[in-house]
Design a protein around this nucleic acid. Sequence first.
DNA 1: GAGTGGTCTAGACCACGGT
DNA 2: CCGTGGTCTAGACCACTCG
Lengths: 235, 235
Amino acid sequence: MSQPQFKNWQAIQDEVLRRIHAREWPPGHVIPGEVDLAAEFGCARATVNRALRTLAEAGILERRRKAGTRVALHPVSRATVDIPIIRQEIEERGSAYGYRLVSRETALPPARARIMLCPDTPAPCLHVRALHLADDSAYTLEDRWISLTTVPEAADQAFDRISPNEWLVTTAPFTHGDIAFGAAAATAEEAGLFETETGAPVFVIDRTTWDHARAITTVRLVYAPGYRIHTGIGG
Amino acid sequence: MSQPQFKNWQAIQDEVLRRIHAREWPPGHVIPGEVDLAAEFGCARATVNRALRTLAEAGILERRRKAGTRVALHPVSRATVDIPIIRQEIEERGSAYGYRLVSRETALPPARARIMLCPDTPAPCLHVRALHLADDSAYTLEDRWISLTTVPEAADQAFDRISPNEWLVTTAPFTHGDIAFGAAAATAEEAGLFETETGAPVFVIDRTTWDHARAITTVRLVYAPGYRIHTGIGG
DNA sequence: GAGTGGTCTAGACCACGGT
DNA sequence: CCGTGGTCTAGACCACTCG
């Protein structure tokens, strides 16, 4: 059973994928244990582990102690989406970046933002609305609430030159967050900015970030009509 | 320099993240090499490698041979999105799944689909449109083109009971793919199915999958108004 | 050329979780 | 209980790439 040597974990991964594709290991099938595979492939168990663990992270395999490793029954596609800083995204598109502050005020957040930022006791937050431009045309409207409890320094920032988006990433790093993508109808104001009509479909990202247990900020990004998020899966 | 022992790679990862957050290692800073860190943390180099490699995959660090490891200048949030089979998605929501075939025909694909499926020479493809229902109300409209060159068996499938979505994942596994998320205006037909008005904003997923070099299928999924994709980052 | 990360090995111990 | 995956170790060689 000594195949012509699978030396590196990527080669083993490819071989495992081949067997899955060839239906030698159909969905739900429990594949041999790491020790057996290591013996078959003529390599150390750690190498097999690396290959199988990576496939499990990709959603191809399901692994459980004692139960063993099986081919996933419902092969979900797991896509990784990069969400860069808006300025960087515009510049990488080859466009000139522009920025304009729309409004800035301290207020008690409305229900949706309050639930994310201060679910216990309502506290005043900084509300900033700003427009990001690509080649002088509106690209994204940033509607953000910043917790002054977690980031009191934000109160001293005018945000007339630097966007909250950019200021926060270099000032208040987060430990974890929460993102949602959706579609919405452009408000009258948004329609004016994006030079389209009220009710036009726009792509929306809602994101909230935390530093450990403390909420930092929650933001709604409304993109100009036609915006798409694009990524690859597999390979 | 012997800290109170960092034994597992997750603890090391936490400590590295702490130093980044505390600005001991600011963005762009080149951090010590693996051997140094292993000595400082009192563990094997492989353990440090595991911790740093994982952080690099998350986009927090940038690693290059000889150049060393540095804190990423532009901290992109890298979100992983699971795209399950539609039936599974509906059932996991706790709803009853329903399916209805809308149309099925063999034809030459229009420009957008042809570019994805058969960029060289136009070839007839199977065009299937089907509706996925959650608790008897429209959830997703699946508009799919299947390459009969790559998947000739599809010609024998009626798709009146099983959706192309479900049939393909168990029949024609893919090696890699391409996904885009966006917003669009509902057509008159979509508006009727989703019980909304023409032009209403709907969430759209365009996905194309390949088996090695051969294109399998390209699909547009139009979701009922209010649909959102939700995921976490970090953690 | 030399230093850094990338990987492999052979062995070991541990933790979870089916039986 | 005890088998399986999860992880750590100490050492080694390789490959890329910067200077």
